[in-house]
Design a protein around this nucleic acid. Structure first.
Length: 317
DNA sequence: AACCTTCCCTGATGGC
DNA sequence: TGCCATCAGGGAAGGT
């Protein structure tokens, strides 16, 4: 599922191809994913120029002069470019850990709900098998966007992502720490993969209640969130990279995951068998040794340097 | 207000 | 081989 690092990767790879291009034509196949009428979307976009691509949490923002078109990719949403003058790739590839389908340049099919034709001939295609994705038309630049995102939580890598603000968001809450991480009004952009990864890095059992998590653990969690998101972006996210790049390079993040999708395999840090449980209706992966239910002792806490995994016995810094 | 459950949707998977 | 039940999961909605 596209989370912050995947959406950021998409943003980075799409922006150079789309910035300052004029929209020539908009074709809607299935309006189910649109939170605006096809007619209104067309009349706004056609003839207008894409000024740039921004991101907020898991939302991708196409900024025009007088409005923005905002995408949420849901579970299976894809935004891809197709050059009709080049031959299409055949078939789809399925990512083992995330289940996300990815494709190289592909012809529109019954899941391709929206196509945006650009002045240089490229076509931006929105494809979403499960239709959990959404497309919004947000009026008038900053004011509209500020209102649109008013309930969204702290934005990682921004000036607002600071420890005191994070702690403030946690006060008064008693839910599972995993559920709190998935709550987009706390930290924007963390989904199931990166929640599990962050809890592993912080050494916190996902089914502990947030109000029982110690202050030093919350501090570790704060740092862990930024660490795993940064790492996800650095490895190009888990999915969309290679069909956007023409050289076919694959993202490598799936090979770097600590716990997500690795149940039954050995913990990269201690070698224990990783487990999968259900927490708050979500599949949850963790290491029973590194993330004990009762919490780690502070003296056993370890600092992470970058994304390197501290080895056992060498974990104190 | 915070929390929990249900629902949306479709392809993959497993049992028989 | 075919058929059906089950599962995955982000976020909105509705109930407590």
């Amino acid at each position: 599922m596209p989370e912050l690092p995947e959406v950021e990767t998409i943003r980075q790879t799409l922006e150079p191809a789309l910035a300052n291009q004029r929209v020539d034509r908009v074709v809607v196949r299935n309006g189910a994913v649109l939170k605006v009428s096809p007619r209104q979307l067309r009349s706004s976009m056609v003839g207008a120029r894409i000024r740039g691509l921004d991101r907020r949490g898991k939302y991708l923002i196409f900024r025009f002069s007088d409005f923005s078109v905002v995408f949420h990719l849901g579970m299976t949403g894809q935004l891809t470019l197709r050059d009709p003058s080049k031959s299409d790739a055949s078939g789809f590839f399925r990512h083992e850990a995330t289940g996300l389908q990815q494709s190289r340049q592909h012809p529109p099919d019954r899941h391709t709900h929206l196509r945006v034709f650009l002045e240089d001939g490229l076509v931006l295609q929105f494809r979403d098998v499960r239709k959990f994705g959404k497309v919004f038309l947000v009026p008038q630049g900053e004011r509209g966007l500020a209102e649109f995102f008013s309930k969204l939580g702290l934005e990682p890598f921004s000036g607002q992502f600071r420890l005191p603000a994070f702690l403030e968001k946690l006060t008064g809450r008693r839910a599972f720490v995993k559920a709190v991480l998935l709550d987009q009004s706390v930290v924007a952009g963390v989904g199931n993969i990166y929640a599990d990864e962050a809890l592993f890095v912080a050494g916190i059992h996902p089914a502990r209640r947030i109000h029982h998590v110690r202050m030093w653990e919350k501090e570790a969690l704060f740092g862990a969130i930024e660490l795993v998101l940064e790492k996800g972006i650095r490895f190009g996210g888990t999915t969309f990279r290679d069909y956007i790049d023409s050289d076919g390079k694959r993202g490598r993040h799936q090979e770097e995951l600590f716990v997500y999708g690795r149940q039954g395999q050995a913990c990269r840090r201690c070698g224990s068998e990783l487990q999968k449980i259900v927490v708050g209706q979500r599949g949850t992966h963790f290491c029973p040794m590194c993330q004990p239910r009762s919490g780690r002792k502070r003296s056993d806490h370890f600092e992470w340097k970058g994304s390197r995994i501290p080895e056992r016995g060498k974990e104190r810094n």
